[in-house]
């Protein structure tokens, strides 16, 4: 089973939930953590894995043979990402803008564009005290997160309960990370900002046809509108984590919640059971 942990709004506690879930489950399950927040992976701060394997990730970017180029401008016109400009007798390629779709080389009438691999990041694998650990790291200055995320996802394996930490927002990296999950946990905070971005995240997850449930972190601040929204939309509210100085203090020192406050372990084990029930019920009623 693959459980993605997303949020919409940043800083709501995805990493807290993902790492607590992984550490609570590891005694009864084979657990793998996939940190797909490749622009700023941080599960490693809490889990402290030993990294044993590093694999570079490449994006295919165009190289134009200007000896043979007629400067017809087709490549610049067909590029949906404005990664190529043809000016006078110059072809300018902006590799950071390139999504690696290959349209330029496919449609070049002179066939003078080849796609060359450009390293954009790395996937690191290792182990953290019995948890199999995979994280993607996008090179600073690079903009294309999805190829790195896809490479992390290649290590998915049915033998494991996979906890996949997702970046904030609802853009391409989030969609790529959530795609293929059995369930998406959405971590939010009970504030207007939390709710606004939660609604966007719920719409995204629904579009992908993936069941979701809500975790409210820092419960006690703000108002009750997130809870009201869950009731109205029929989305299960699975866990409340209160605003607590003790939790914040542990977290700020990189100490896992379920180690510093082991009483939380049962809450996360229960959380996984609830998720499993929702997923299996849904699988037996696929029309829903």
């Amino acid at each position: 089973m693959i459980i993605s942990v997303a949020s919409g709004k940043g800083g709501t506690g995805k990493t807290l939930v993902a790492t607590s879930l992984a550490l609570s489950l590891k005694d009864g399950h084979k657990v793998m953590v996939q940190d797909c927040d490749v622009e700023e992976p941080n599960d490693h701060i809490i889990l402290k894995p030993v990294i044993t394997d590093r694999e570079p990730v490449f994006n295919l970017v165009p190289r134009v043979d200007e000896e043979k180029c007629t400067y017809c401008g087709t490549c610049a016109r067909v590029c949906a990402f404005n990664a190529i400009a043809v000016i006078n007798e110059h072809v300018l390629v902006f590799p950071q803008m390139c999504h690696g779709c290959g349209a330029c080389s496919y449609l070049c009438p002179e066939k003078v564009i080849t796609e060359i691999p450009k390293e954009i990041g790395v996937v690191e694998r290792g182990e953290a005290d019995g948890i199999s650990f995979v994280q993607g790291v996008l090179t600073i200055g690079e903009a294309m997160a999805p190829p790195v995320i896809r490479k992390v996802k290649e290590y998915s394996n049915n033998d494991y309960t996979i906890i996949r930490d997702v970046s904030p927002g609802t853009s391409c990296p989030v969609v790529e990370s959530i795609k293929g999950s059995d369930f998406c946990l959405l971590v939010t905070e009970p504030t207007p900002f939390g709710l606004n971005d939660l609604i966007l995240a719920v719409e995204t997850v629904k579009e992908l046809g993936i069941p979701c449930g809500i975790v409210i972190n820092r419960a006690g601040v703000g108002d009750s509108k997130v809870a009201d929204y869950c009731v109205k939309e029929g989305i299960p509210l699975l866990l409340n984590i209160p605003l607590s100085t003790d939790i914040a203090s542990l977290y700020s020192r990189g100490i896992p919640l379920v180690e510093g406050m082991p009483q939380w372990r049962d809450s996360f084990i229960k959380l996984e059971k609830q998720i499993k029930e929702i997923v299996s019920e849904r699988n037996s009623n696929p029309q829903r």
């Binding site: 610049a76 990402f81 404005n82 990664a83 400009a85 043809v86 000016i87 006078n88 300018l92 902006f94 803008m97 903009a143």
Partner: peptide
């Protein structure tokens, strides 16, 4: 309102 590369595309248009 380009998703990305607005400067590149605009510069090419102005050229």
């Amino acid at each position: 309102a380009a998703g990305g590369g607005a400067g590149i595309a605009t510069a090419q248009m102005i050229a």
